[in-house]
Amino acid sequence: MSLIDHLDHLVLTCVDVEATRRFYIDVLQMKLETFGDGRMAFRFGNQKINLHVRGAEFEPKAHLPVPGALDLCFIASVPLDRVIERLAQMNVPIIEGPVERTGATQKLRSVYVRDPDYNLIEISELI
């Protein structure tokens, strides 16, 4: 048995809060959550992404918090073809895919995009 059960949240460091908010809320349709002293997070399922702004991070923080250093894979709640349609509607270019990949529990069909800070975002469906 592993010591760890699941991921609760991760922290994303951004440069432009509004561009990041638009991407995660408008494009990926995550829910905005505010907490604490004006902190912001993007909620999806039972997880969330807390947002830090470069140069104004909350303590404690990663040793070297930098925008654009993440490579994230999200499992879509809808068929990947609907994700592809949504990305096209929102003028978000797909940089690779659809392609077959290996996920944590099974094979995936994925597309790759970049968020406003150039983090690599993989959006997948289980196959």
Rank of each mutant, 00 (worst) to 15 (best):
T34C: 08
G55M: 05
F58S: 13
I84E: 06
H52Q: 09
R114M: 09
M90D: 14
K61A: 14
L87T: 07
T102R: 14
S124N: 02
P79W: 06
E59T: 12
R22D: 15
L7D: 07
G55V: 04
A19G: 09
L108T: 04
E125T: 04
G38M: 05
K48Q: 11
P65V: 02
D26K: 12
D71G: 01
G68L: 01
M1C: 11
F44A: 10
V53C: 08
A88N: 12
V66E: 15
Y112S: 03
A69F: 03
Q47M: 08
L28R: 00
R101M: 10
L120S: 06
C14N: 07
Y112N: 04
G97M: 05
D37K: 15
L12N: 00
E85V: 11
Q106P: 04
D81G: 05
D5C: 10
P116C: 06
C73M: 05
R21I: 08
Q89C: 09
V113Y: 01
P93T: 08
I75D: 07
K61H: 14
V15K: 13
P60C: 10
T34P: 04
E96W: 06
N119I: 03
D71C: 03
A76W: 00
A62F: 09
E18S: 13
P60W: 10
R101A: 09
P98Y: 08
N91T: 10
E33T: 10
R54P: 00
K31W: 02
D8N: 15
S2K: 13
D26P: 05
C14T: 13
I95K: 14
D5E: 15
P67T: 05
I123V: 08
H63E: 14
I49N: 02
L120H: 02
A88K: 15
S77K: 12
I123K: 00
I75N: 08
A88H: 12
V111Y: 00
S110Q: 04
R43V: 15
L12G: 00
D5F: 15
L3V: 13
P67K: 08
E122G: 01
T13K: 00
A62N: 12
A56Y: 13
M1F: 10
G68I: 00
Y24L: 09
N119Q: 06
G68P: 00
S2I: 10
A41R: 04
M40G: 01
G103M: 07
I95N: 10
R114D: 02
A104C: 09
N46D: 15
I25M: 12
L70C: 06
I84C: 06
V53R: 13
A76S: 15
E18C: 06
A104M: 13
I25C: 12
L7A: 13
P79V: 10
K61F: 05
A76N: 02
D115R: 00
Y112Q: 06
L64D: 13
I95A: 11
V113L: 05
